[in-house]
């Protein structure tokens, strides 16, 4: 465990000594800010209309602002995750520092876990920027915090799953651009897999749609923590990290 933390600590320092951490946080903050502005503006307009029509029930901030916002955040995360994970192993391979890690008294899975945890910390910092916007909602309204917490848990689990896949892809190449591009393609594919369910009802289509990360995220954004979805994400994280460890081992046999 100590070795995992040493590696994670080094990864986090690497992110924050390079511009990448600040760039990612700035991009996310900007885009999320725009989404937030649009969503609240729309919400205000709709609720004024409702009042004029004599609607008695006030509109729910959770359903109309926070839910869609978290959905959008997960999409933005999809674009940022390749940028976080692409360097994890590709850079080490290019610099030759892989030899240092692999000849140090550290087990392969400790390296994998450490790097993934470092990337997770970076990802959480990025999506954490959105808490500023959420704090504004709390300052001017009375949203329920439970669905928000569930939504953030979903974001973290989804991010963890895609980061694990990105980490695996990063071990297969020494070129960061290739790693990033391939990760982006896989993330996007995993996201739109559920489209098959709209035109096909066969068993295989259900299986394919089930593998979509988006279908498992939707309940979280509505405030529902379903063990089925949690287990899906945890399985994907395990699978991604397992493949990473195997891929690292194959480096020894091939290189």
């Amino acid at each position: 465990m100590k070795n995992v933390l040493i590696i994670a600590d080094k990864e986090i320092k690497t992110y924050f000594t390079s511009p990448i951490a600040y760039l990612l946080m700035a991009i996310f903050g900007l885009i999320f800010g725009y989404f937030m502005f649009s969503a609240t503006a729309f919400f205000v307009m709709r609720s004024m209309e409702m009042q004029m029509q004599g609607g008695s029930q006030p509109m729910n901030v959770n359903d109309f602002v926070i839910g869609p916002l978290l959905g959008n955040a997960s999409v933005v995360g999809l674009f940022l995750i390749p940028m976080i994970s692409m360097r994890l192993f590709a850079e080490e391979k290019r610099q030759g520092t892989m030899e240092l890690l692999m000849t140090s008294p550290v087990r392969d899975y400790e390296i994998v876990l450490g790097k993934w945890l470092g990337a997770m910390f970076m990802y959480i910092c990025v999506i954490g920027i959105s808490l500023l916007n959420v704090a504004i909602l709390f300052a001017y309204g009375k949203p329920d915090w439970h669905p928000i917490a569930a939504g953030y848990l979903g974001l973290i689990l989804q991010g963890g799953c895609l980061l694990a896949i990105g980490t695996f892809i990063s071990t297969t190449t020494r070129n960061q651009i290739i790693a990033g591009g391939a990760t982006f393609a896989v993330c996007l594919l995993l996201w739109v897999l559920d489209w098959v369910s709209s035109y096909e009802q066969a068993a295989w289509a259900k299986v394919v749609a089930y593998c979509s990360v988006l279908t498992h995220f939707e309940p979280f954004s509505k405030g529902v923590i379903d063990s089925k979805d949690v287990i899906f994400y945890l399985t994907m994280i395990f699978l991604g990290l397992f493949l990473t460890a195997r891929s690292m081992e194959s480096l020894r046999w091939r290189s």
Binding site: I6, K13, T17, Q95, G96, E99, L100, T103, S104, P105
Partner: peptide
């Protein structure tokens, strides 16, 4: 072990790097 190309992280300071390696070892 010193490989043919020294396995160093260009974005780290010398002492920071050696501290990391020390912990790793």
């Amino acid at each position: 072990y010193l490989p043919e190309n020294p396995p160093v992280y260009p974005e780290m300071e010398v002492r920071e790097y050696l501290t990391f390696v020390g912990k790793l070892k």
